[in-house]
Amino acid sequence: MTFSFLNPLYTAVSWIIVQFHSLYSHVFDPDGGWAWGLSIVSMVIVIRICLIPLFVKQIKATRAMQAIQPKMKAIQERYKNDRQRQSEEMMKLYKEAGTNPFSSCLPILVQAPFFTALYGVLASVANDKTIGVINSDLLNSAQQAHIFGAPLSATFLGSDEVSVKIVVAIMIVLMSLSQFITQRQLMTKNMDLTVKTPFMQQQKMLMYVFPIMFAVMGINFPVGVLVYWLTTNVWSMGQQLIVIRNNPTPGSKAWDERQTRLKKAGRLNPDGSVKKVGLLATLSGGGGKPAATSAAAVVEETVQVRRQQPRKQSKAQRQHASGQPVVGEPGQDQAAADAPQTDLTKHDAVPAGSPVSKQPVGKAGTRQQPKRGGQRPKKKP
């Protein structure tokens, strides 16, 4: 094979397709277009699920580009006569923000190897050559498969039948149109159009360049590849609609629409924050209070509870509180035990009721330990 470094990709792509084909063969004709077409669609879904973390990273990078737009505009105005310095400052700003203007192209770049591998697999099927895990039996089955009357490996330029050209042309138009709609909804609904920056110009350019590029290249794509790109574009469109509706960029048209929906539903606080509902409301304190306020209230309540806890008492203090005779002072009544006692020295008085006040005092203010056998210390005459 000419491109030997692509063999692992050929094997991986063909293996995924064959596994889904064996699954769909239980329902559809193994040699029909439904079994092979759905196998390609299922492969796209598997790839896009694996790319969800990259899609999340793309959203964060795009939001970072939105956040630095005012700084980008300031750099443009400051160095409008020095293009080189302007480019240097822009690259420095991108590095500090951890983003770049081409972050939105990441999903397409990552899918490029899979697209190339699928193109090679279908080209081998058209040229009657086995590839990857597709053996001669599977090769014959794939060659018989037709999608809406067009062979799986047929191309617009490589087919002489008018019906096949019409099917391929419709698929090319749908592929390009879905690409344009996806990029346009990102531009018109999820970006702050009040600030004109190079990032906005780049996104606007991509909105027109990508569809045209795919339309020109699509005339050489096999039907199976067109199915691949049409499926991935539809996936991107739906995925982006969900993100734009539930997590729009602040300041965009979609953000204003979301705030209006939340206000009508009564879920918007006066400060602009969203009220929690259900379990989230319970955890955050309920009543529409912000989570930060509820958390502060919980902390304050915990501190107050801790302050109300009684301190640990000594054995002598517990005996005094219960009215029992204190050790070292048998026979004294409760009044004598409660009377204030002072040391023989001229220092500070010992608080009444403390363990120290219950011990006999000797010379120089030192306490004498009681002797063994229960004998009391001798009193000083």
Rank of each mutant, 00 (worst) to 15 (best):
M207G: 07
A349E: 12
S273Y: 02
P222K: 01
S4Y: 13
A281G: 15
F3K: 12
F214D: 05
A339V: 08
P113S: 03
I181V: 15
I147H: 02
M213V: 08
P290D: 14
G374E: 02
A150E: 08
S124K: 04
V223E: 00
T302D: 02
R48P: 08
A215V: 05
S322C: 10
D271A: 03
W36Y: 11
F115P: 08
P330D: 15
I212K: 08
K312V: 13
I52F: 14
M205D: 06
A339M: 10
Q308W: 00
P107Q: 01
Y94Q: 08
G353Q: 11
S284A: 02
H26Y: 15
R184G: 08
L6N: 04
P53H: 07
A112V: 04
S25M: 08
D137Y: 11
I68H: 03
I131R: 04
I108M: 09
P355F: 07
V303M: 13
Q319I: 05
V243D: 09
R307Q: 13
D348H: 10
K57S: 11
V274F: 00
P70K: 04
R258Y: 15
Q201I: 07
R318H: 14
K71L: 05
R307I: 01
V303H: 10
G120F: 03
Q86R: 06
T11W: 09
S103R: 06
D137K: 11
G353F: 06
S124T: 01
N7F: 09
F221T: 02
S14E: 11
A97H: 00
Q319R: 13
